[in-house]
């Protein structure tokens, strides 16, 4: 088996924690896994992404172009930015949230009219998630990331219990139940 997942969003949305959970999930499932991302400059409100590759044996931590099986986009514009990694019949889960970059706020650039529609034009399996709403329902707008992996979990074969244990491995105890609630809402949604 092979699962390549690209996760993208904006600094502060919890992209890296989401991919951390997926990495631990793979270890619990006794598979090989590599995850790659860029720290540093990228974090000051910049565009953030993480490549996650799960399989029997993974070489490059970077996903080749046009070959990701899944995209988790935490923000609409970012879905467009990382589309080149996605394969034609890949599954896109996009959070219906827009965050204008400074280039747009200051009038130097224009936010595309409808990124989700643009994605749908080129990819057949685009699913929208109201992650912010569900995260608030779970108890915090910060739990968008867990709603998103909850939504992803429906497409993968692993038991829900495995996902919850993976979360246990990377989330501090006091935030765990909130995050697991968000995950369940994403999975049910």
């Amino acid at each position: 088996m092979k699962v390549d997942i690209i996760i993208c969003g904006v600094g502060g949305q919890g992209v890296l924690l989401a991919s951390e959970v997926l990495g631990n999930l793979a270890i619990l499932a006794r598979l090989d896994v590599k995850k790659s991302e860029i720290h540093g400059m990228a974090q000051r409100g910049g565009s953030v992404f993480s490549h996650l590759r799960i399989g029997e044996k993974v070489n490059s931590p970077v996903i080749p172009l046009g070959s990701a099986d899944f995209m988790l986009a935490f923000e609409e514009l970012e879905a467009l930015r990382y589309a080149p990694y996605l394969k034609k019949d890949g599954v896109v889960l996009v959070n219906r949230q827009r965050i204008s970059p400074l280039t747009v706020l200051s009038g130097d650039a224009k936010y595309p009219e409808n990124p989700v529609a643009m994605m749908k034009e080129h990819f057949e399996r685009v699913f929208e998630v109201n992650a912010l709403e569900l995260a608030k329902k779970a108890g915090s707008p910060k739990a968008v990331n867990m709603v998103m992996i909850g939504a992803l979990s429906k497409f993968l074969d692993w038991d829900e219990s495995l996902w919850l244990s993976a979360m246990e491995r990377c989330i501090p105890q006091r935030f765990l139940s909130l995050n697991q609630r968000a995950f369940s809402l994403g999975r049910a949604g």
Partner: peptide, 18 residues
């Protein structure tokens, strides 16, 4: 030639002062 889809004119999201 890898085949993939890319969109042009996507506004940059550079890092900024908080």
């Amino acid at each position: 030639k890898p085949s993939y889809i890319s969109f042009s004119d996507i506004p940059a999201r550079p890092p900024t002062l908080c």
